[in-house]
Amino acid sequence: MIRYLLPLGIFAGLVLIFIYGLQHDPRLVPSPLIDKPAPTFNLPTLHSPGINIHLDDLKGKVSLLNVWASWCVACREEHPLLVKTSQTNALNLYGLNYKDTREDALRWLNKLGNPYIESAFDQAGTIGIDYGVYGVPETFVLDKNGIIRYKHIGPLNKQDIDDIILPLVKQLEQPAS
């Protein structure tokens, strides 16, 4: 009897492993930066080249850093949702404009709306490397002390915002007990 049940059991085990494997997107690589201080930056803002934005400007409040570019097709996908969410003032949303030209990026925001409090202009992509960015758009949730608490790779959808981002922000905003 065991002779016939054993291969069946092995097969069932393999099926379970495959089901587990298929539910994991290999493109989503866990970031080693979670629960670590966000890499510091001091970059010119997208709108006014003379004024710089520093990581410290994001501290004190729970904030989101969204890495985007005008050449990025998936950014266009999540953009309307970011604009809509920004109108509720529920999030402190900052942008990191990644390997873009100022002209293209500004035209993009003028046309599609600007959900960001401010966008840092990372033309060379060096800050992107510090944040381990490998596929725009990416979104980081930073707590009040500038510690990275969450990273989302790829475009955000409504479910991501409602079920993950907003509850997390709410939780992080509560004073530490």
Partner: peptide, 8 residues
């Protein structure tokens, strides 16, 4: 590189 992108 590992600090930024992980062991992967």
């Amino acid at each position: 590189l590992v600090e930024r992108y992980g062991d992967f």
